Amino acid sequence: MRTTRAVRVRHAARAFPREVPAGSAPARQPVWLFDLDNTLHHASHAIFPQINRLMTAYVARVLGTDDATASQVRVDYWRRYGATILGMVRHHGVDPDDFLAEAHRFEDLRAMVRAERGLAQLLRALPGRKILLTNAPVAYAREVLRLIGLKRAFLREIAVEHMWVHRRLRPKPDPLMLRRLLARERIAPSRAILVEDTLSHLKRYRRLGIGTVWVTGYLRRVPPGGQPTSTADALHPMQAAAVGARANSPHQPAATPILFANRPGYVSVKVKSVLQLKRRLVRRG
């Protein structure tokens, strides 16, 4: 009986969390789905390098290998499955909660966070509901939101622990997870707008009929012929792979610089900062 109850409680914790009551909103207002890392704050400044080191160390311990091999495996699993955690669970039977906890240990997160001022005012000014949709763990996501002044900015915070569908972990860019979220919230895809820095997520979800906003301000640029200064300075694997950034990968030689002048067809709006959202949307009518 105790075992059954423990399993039931664990699965309940992984379900989509209840939304904070906010009264009825006009049916035609948009529903904003905001990513967190490198969208609402500058994760590549210090947080992603730390996550890279922690993930690599974790993979190395599980595989019993050196850091260089572990880093290759880490990136390969992201490219194959969309998230390193999926490869580690599928091929090595790791506990996803343990993996997430070990990959997001920070002695002084406050000192690592960098964000723009005015985000709370911007989110309040945008019409419609706002939902946080992040592949990061919930404890980390909530602490970052608190540190950047967005603790009460979202009606719901959906983190990776909440992305279990049919007993399988399905983080972004899994389409079934997003379809389930939209169905549960009774949101027509045409009303949903995903605000993201990761192009592969935007591309996959645009096929569902949602609007897409690409945030480029925190994506690292490499000058012609330049190389990353060290592995610790490299982007999170999901950033490097998502923009086809071989020049930003610690595992590939630098080739051409990453330029963000073009807007892919599956991107509805491209902005450098989320602070530009209201002005750009007004301009588009």
Rank of each mutant, 00 (worst) to 15 (best):
M1E: 09
R5C: 04
R5N: 03
H11P: 00
A12M: 14
R18T: 13
S24F: 06
P26Y: 03
A27K: 12
Q29D: 14
L33Q: 06
F34Y: 13
F34G: 04
N38H: 06
T39G: 03
H41Q: 02
A43F: 04
S44L: 01
H45F: 10
Q50R: 13
L54K: 09
M55A: 05
M55E: 02
Y58N: 01
L63T: 08
L63N: 06
D66G: 15
T69H: 06
A70T: 05
R74Y: 11
V75M: 07
W78R: 09
W78Q: 05
R79L: 11
R80G: 01
Y81V: 07
G82R: 02
A83Y: 07
A83E: 02
G87M: 12
G87H: 07
H92K: 00
H92P: 00
H92M: 02
V94Y: 09
D98E: 08
L100A: 12
R105Y: 01
F106Y: 14
D108A: 09
R110S: 14
A111V: 03
V113K: 04
A115V: 10
A120M: 05
Q121I: 02
A125I: 10
P127N: 07
R129H: 07
K130A: 12
L132D: 01
N135V: 12
A136Y: 05
Y140P: 00
V144L: 06
R146Y: 02
L147T: 12
I148H: 09
K151M: 02
A153E: 05
F154V: 11
L155D: 13
E157D: 11
E157M: 06
A159D: 04
H162D: 11
M163P: 01
R167P: 00
R168C: 13
R168V: 13
L169P: 06
R170W: 05
D174R: 01
P175W: 01
L176M: 06
L178N: 06
A183F: 10
R184C: 02
R186Y: 03
A188W: 04
A188K: 07
A192P: 03
A192Q: 08
L194I: 13
L199N: 00
R204E: 15
G211M: 05
T212W: 05
T216K: 12
G217K: 13
R220W: 00
R221W: 02
R221E: 15
R221T: 15
P223E: 09
G225D: 04
G226P: 10
S230T: 15
S230Y: 10
A232M: 04
L235E: 14
M238R: 08
M238D: 06
A242H: 07
N248P: 00
N248M: 11
H251C: 07
P257C: 05
N262R: 13
P264C: 11
G265F: 02
Y266L: 08
V267E: 01
S268Q: 11
S273A: 07
S273D: 03
S273H: 10
V274Q: 03
R280C: 04
L281F: 13
V282W: 12
R284Q: 13
